[in-house]
Design a protein around this nucleic acid. Structure first.
Length: 574
DNA sequence: GCCGTTTTCGGCCCGACTGTTTTCAGTCG
């Protein structure tokens, strides 16, 4: 049982308890436990009771439940709840405007168990007959059902970023003197966003009307004086909040989250005799506002350094801010090189010289051309002869002095047994080797882990490419013991890639932080397949920032010669 | 269900909007 599977069961327990109208704090404890499991870098199933209980938020009961899930795949408590309520009613809970109380009423009064049951009940007019419901509520449920089919959940960060940027431009035109900024998961740089949260401070009330009249709005979910929600074409829910200019910092802090970070900050405020809300930080004794205009002032008043939004996930940032130990996070401008890209030699759209010139324009000082190898026949992968010939051409372009240095490499396939796709002497003749998995994703955890370990142990491998194979919102990562992989990379001095393809962002933030903590060198690479793709480096940098990564943790922040000297093959020789 | 260097019991973050209401419950973030 991996952490995500454990998290799913704990979250289902929380949802079912909520429908049962159980103790809200118990529900929060389970939900919190699910978040802890989902974000924990280590395999919880490998920890014993003592190890689990050392995790804040995991107590006696949750530790026992997690042990039971790890051992048997489920827990009796979960099974009991499912016996009480059909698990399909959890689908109802995720509809806009339908919460636990409504689900319970629908089940109790009308025996509604599925989305199909709900739809027919709504169409029959049976829902409006229930106490507390009406024709309007019934219509909203039908709309939510219809939208669920079209608006499927979360979005990639870059897509959300683009949609939000367009909306911000529109709003700024209508309120030029106001400050309008994205907040929420967008500002924290999460790899997916559920909705677009925007904050306007110092804007006229009329901006709310402008917002709901935005030309891409498909439905208005709410329209108030300080808060409105709409559905925007493309499947985005967008929320706009309006606050006075002197509350901007408090509102930024509050609406940026994460929820867990905010709860911890409020706890701290209470301990120190304050109350914190989206309008400011107030002294409890006399209700005097002590901060609110700037985020920095709020953190400072609570005895904390300002915490970059990407770190606000309750992964130790509050302790670090208290002891002035926050990292100086990497920026896009720190990147000097890009170590993974393709050319027309295999499945890239542009030739080597075009890629080099585009990289220079993107501000890079050096690149590695790393085309695919033989096994990826679909992409016209290189065999040994072509790899050597290609390397000679790359070095010839390098010799032209284009203002950007080139390294001749490959993205070498890791075959199903963990061996590499090209002969050792060929790999040794190249400047750099990225090794990646592109096939046999269905191997079990033991096989896949052994496969990656074997590749890491290979003396010619410099970098492990997109290590988990995930495609965000499309494909789960393959099962693999990332902790073992990271430890092996640390032992052998192999770097691990943060791949910047918007669907990959692989390593993710949690594993990248673990790698950093274990002293594994990281690289941030575009995996560009065309000259237009270098812009995506910013998204990999965002992952790195969420992983607490500083410039020195990343090999391709080094100047060219220093970088070359750090490559595994050169260290071994020296 | 979790937590505690004032507490092992009694707390647990806070506010806006909507719909169905005659003063509030449910949902959402």
């Amino acid at each position: 049982m991996d952490n995500l599977a454990i998290a799913r069961i704990l979250r289902e327990i929380a949802d079912l308890l909520e429908i049962k109208d159980d103790n809200p704090f118990k529900i929060r404890a389970y939900r919190n436990g699910a978040d802890i499991a989902a974000n924990h870098p280590h395999e919880l199933s490998l920890l014993d009771e003592t190890g689990l209980r050392e995790i804040p938020g995991i107590g006696k009961d949750l530790a026992a439940r997690i042990r039971e899930i790890a051992g048997t795949g489920d827990t009796a408590f979960h099974r009991e709840l499912i016996a009480e309520f059909p698990p399909t009613i959890l689908d109802l809970l995720h509809l806009q405007g339908v919460g636990p109380k409504t689900v319970a009423t629908l089940y109790r009064e009308l025996d509604i168990r599925t989305l199909e049951d709900l739809e027919s009940a709504a169409l029959d007019g049976r829902i409006r007959a229930l106490r507390g419901m009406g024709a309007r509520k019934e219509g909203l449920i039908l709309k939510a059902l219809e939208e669920r089919k079209r608006f499927a959940g979360r979005h990639l960060l870059p897509d959300a970023h683009d949609a939000a940027a367009a909306l911000v431009v529109y709003l700024r035109e209508r309120a030029p003197d106001a400050t309008i900024e994205p907040v929420g998961s967008l500002r924290r740089g999460c790899d997916t966003c559920g909705d677009l949260d925007l904050l306007a401070s110092g804007a006229p009330q009329s901006l709310m009307d402008d917002f709901v009249e935005y030309r891409l709005v498909e439905r208005v979910l709410g329209h108030g004086d300080t808060r409105s929600s709409v559905l925007v074409r493309g499947g985005f829910q967008a929320d706009l909040r309006l606050v006075a200019a002197d509350s901007r910092g408090a509102a930024m802090q509050y609406f940026t989250g994460s929820k867990a970070h905010n709860i911890a900050l409020r706890d701290r405020a209470i301990d120190q005799g304050f109350k914190l809300n989206e309008y400011g930080l107030f002294r409890t004794a006399d209700d005097v506002k002590v901060a609110g205009q700037r985020e920095e002032d709020i953190y400072a008043a609570l005895g904390l350094d300002w915490i970059p939004p990407e770190l606000r996930e309750m992964r130790g940032e509050i302790d670090a801010a208290r002891s002035h130990a926050l990292p100086r996070l990497i920026d896009r401008g720190d990147l000097r090189g890009d170590l993974h890209m393709h050319s027309t030699e295999t499945d890239g759209k542009d030739d080597v010289r075009t890629m080099a010139e585009a990289a220079r324009e993107a501000g890079l000082e050096y690149i590695a051309i790393t085309d695919h190898t033989r096994s990826l026949a679909m992409a016209n992968g290189l065999d040994e002869r072509r790899a050597i010939e290609s390397a000679a051409r790359i070095r010839a372009v390098d010799a032209e002095g284009l203002g950007v240095r080139l390294l001749a490499g490959v993205e070498c396939d890791i075959k199903a047994d963990g061996s590499l796709d090209l002969a050792d002497d060929c790999l040794a003749a190249l400047d750099i080797v990225v090794a990646s998995v592109h096939s046999a994703f269905t191997q079990d955890r033991e096989q896949m882990t052994a496969r990656l370990l074997r590749a890491i142990e290979h003396p010619q491998v410099d970098i492990l490419g997109h290590p988990t194979g995930r495609l965000i919102l499309k494909r789960q990562p393959y099962p693999v013991d990332m902790e073992a992989v990271i430890d092996a990379a640390a032992r052998h001095g192999v770097a691990i890639e943060i791949n910047c393809q918007v669907h990959r962002l692989d390593l993710n933030d949690v594993h990248a932080k673990l790698a950093r903590d274990r002293g594994v060198p990281l690289v941030i690479s575009s995996d560009a397949h065309s000259r237009h793709a270098f812009g995506r480096l910013r998204w990999g940098v965002m992952v790195a920032r969420r992983a607490w990564i500083q410039p020195a943790d990343v090999l391709n922040t080094r100047p060219f010669e220093a970088f070359r000297a750090l490559l595994r093959r050169h260290r071994r020789r020296s």
